[in-house]
């Protein structure tokens, strides 16, 4: 994922520059009665610096899966989605899809690089929402198709990076509200309370044990270590009181790519959080890497999931932080 994004982001830049002006600002004409949308106009200043103005709030919204899931938890249902939407062998979607229900939405792409432009056009889309990580291009919109896709409906880019998960979640609550969701709902308030409580529990566990935590995305070729200062959940966990370590000689980026020889730097980590997108699949191969297998945290079995790219919602992060709080409570200082 990490490399994949870096590689394609550059390619996306050029195409987007050509289409941003044409697709962004014109009002979409729609004859379908918007049931959930508020009567007023929809105005949104997106992460690409683009002002999106529509006469009324769009009802046919198509979004990248993590974005769609975050909006759903904030009270707004998209009509279509693309992104990581391929069910696994048991029929379950990845955690990155949150509470999305495939029977209720049109899927126009189910993995990176996949986007069915025709299916999308037939939906008469009024708004597309996706992340941008480079302030230039949309994350899961394939570069080769982006001109066509962005010509069909205006696109709103939400930032890919935030200082904290609080800020990230509020961005989606705000957008959902503008799209017509009831952001004062009891469900949302409950999720927010649970979220705050889970973070407090993490703070207590951290205070009681003084655990040192590292966040990693290990592959057999290289060890990627996340710098918490450039990761929303990293900053949030640090603010909650957890000691999350940065890699040596940090690069001011999310990931530092280290040689496996350098894994010994993390001998003092009591807990390692690993990228849940890839860890299970590579677990058996990693066990054969001596400098991984002999890390004290790995030996002690104190390796837990880091739910990278989870939907930014109070509901999903309440679950993630509650799970982590439980694990930290049970973990031992090594």
């Amino acid at each position: 994922m990490i490399k994949k994004f870096a590689g394609t982001a550059v390619a996306l830049v050029a195409t987007f520059a050509l289409t941003a002006c044409g697709g962004g600002t014109e009002a979409a004409t729609t004859d379908s009665a918007a049931s959930t949308a508020p009567a007023g106009p929809f105005e949104y200043k997106d992460a690409l610096g683009k002002e999106i103005k529509l006469d009324k709030a769009p009802s046919v919204v198509v979004a990248q899966s993590s974005v769609a899931a975050a909006l759903l938890d904030a009270g707004f249902e998209v009509k279509g989605a693309y992104g990581e939407l391929k069910p696994d062998a048991s029929g379950k979607l990845s955690y990155q899809a949150g509470s999305l229900d495939l029977s209720k939405i049109t899927v126009v792409g189910s993995t990176y690089g996949e986007f069915d432009t025709e299916k999308y056009a037939l939906m008469n889309p009024e708004l597309l929402v996706d992340y941008t990580f480079d302030a230039k291009s949309l994350w899961y919109v394939p570069a080769a198709q982006s001109e066509k896709i962005l010509g069909l409906a205006p696109a709103a880019a939400v930032p890919g990076n935030y200082e904290t998960t609080d800020a990230a979640i509020e961005t989606f609550v705000d957008l959902a509200g503008k799209l017509g969701a009831d952001t004062g709902s009891a469900a949302l308030a409950t999720s927010k309370t649970e979220y705050t409580a889970a973070l407090a529990a993490i703070g207590e566990a951290a205070k009681a044990s003084g655990l040192k935590v590292a966040i990693m995305s290990p592959s057999t070729d290289s060890l990627y270590v996340a710098d918490p200062l450039y990761l929303p959940e990293g900053n949030t966990l640090k603010k909650a009181g957890l000691d999350v370590v940065s890699p040596e000689n940090p690069k001011k980026e999310v990931f530092a790519q280290l040689s496996w020889e350098q894994a010994t730097q993390f001998n003092d980590a009591d807990v390692i959080l690993v990228d849940a997108r890839t860890y299970e699949a590579g677990k058996a191969d990693l066990a054969k890497v001596a400098t991984w297998a002999n890390l004290p945290a790995v030996k002690a079995g104190q390796v837990y999931n880091w739910y990278a790219a989870a939907p930014y919602s109070y509901k999903s992060y309440a679950q993630i932080y509650a799970e982590l709080a439980g694990q930290l409570k049970a973990a031992k200082k090594l």
Binding site: E84, K86, A281
Partner: peptide, 12 residues
């Protein structure tokens, strides 16, 4: 390899 994340990781 572009089918899904697991395939991509395996096929790099």
């Amino acid at each position: 390899s572009m089918r899904d994340q697991d395939s991509y990781n395996e096929m790099r």
